Computed example of a mutant assay.
Amino acid sequence: MDGPWVGTWRPHRPLGLVMAQFTTPGPKYSIPGTTGYLSHNPCKTRAPAYTFRGAKHPNAESCSPGPRYYIHPSITRNGKYLAPAVPMAGAPKAKIEVTPGPSDYFTERANKLLYRRVPAQSMAFRHEVKPALVPGPGAYTLPRVVGPNTVYTPASPCYSMGGKSKHNSYADDLAKTPGPAAYPKVELDIYNRRAPTYTM
């Protein structure tokens, strides 16, 4: 018998977890994490997630010329830009054309003139010019612009200067009763004590 041990059992390190050493239900239950999108802790607020996507693959058929074509810097959207420059060539030779001048035309030889006139070699009298039978400037009158009856301008208020009406005036007797002047003056001796009178 080797020491206080019974049988073939000897002290050794445990090969796995011993449930008797834990006061909790054990590692069977785990708290969800607070990072990531999947299996997030439902008790915590989940922040928006962004993905890191790779570069976009180039299309096989491109609709733009791309850098394969070289465009000259002087070509703009408004056309080709050229800086001001002085030509070094000689002056062009001007071609002189012989054209008729003003003295080569004769208006006197025209068959039809614009205004009627007496022939140059005629002894006849000039025709009397008949006056045109059209109304002159004084035949028309402009519409009035002052007063109540105007055509195209707004009329201002008009006030008449007529006399006063006798109907319902201050001198009209509306009550139709006698006034104070309709009764004669009563002597004071009639309703008061008569004073003594003296004769000379």
Rank of each mutant, 00 (worst) to 15 (best):
D2T: 10
P4Q: 02
V6K: 08
G7K: 00
T8E: 11
R10M: 15
R13C: 13
L17I: 15
V18A: 09
M19F: 11
A20M: 05
P25A: 02
S30K: 04
I31H: 01
L38R: 09
N41K: 00
P42N: 02
K44G: 00
K44H: 07
P48I: 02
T51D: 15
T51P: 00
F52E: 08
R53Q: 15
P58F: 00
S62K: 11
C63E: 06
S64G: 06
P65A: 04
Y69S: 02
I71H: 07
I71Q: 09
P73Q: 04
P73M: 00
I75H: 03
T76D: 00
R77K: 12
N78P: 01
Y81I: 00
L82I: 06
A83W: 05
P84S: 09
A85F: 13
V86W: 06
V86R: 11
G90F: 08
A91T: 14
K95H: 07
T99N: 02
T99L: 11
Y105T: 13
T107A: 12
R109T: 14
A110K: 09
A110E: 15
L114A: 14
R117V: 07
P119H: 04
R126K: 15
R126G: 05
E128T: 04
V129F: 06
L142V: 07
P148C: 10
T153V: 09
P154M: 13
S160Y: 12
S160A: 13
M161K: 04
G163F: 03
K166L: 15
K166P: 15
H167C: 06
A171Q: 15
D173Y: 01
A175L: 11
A182N: 08
Y198A: 09
Y198T: 12
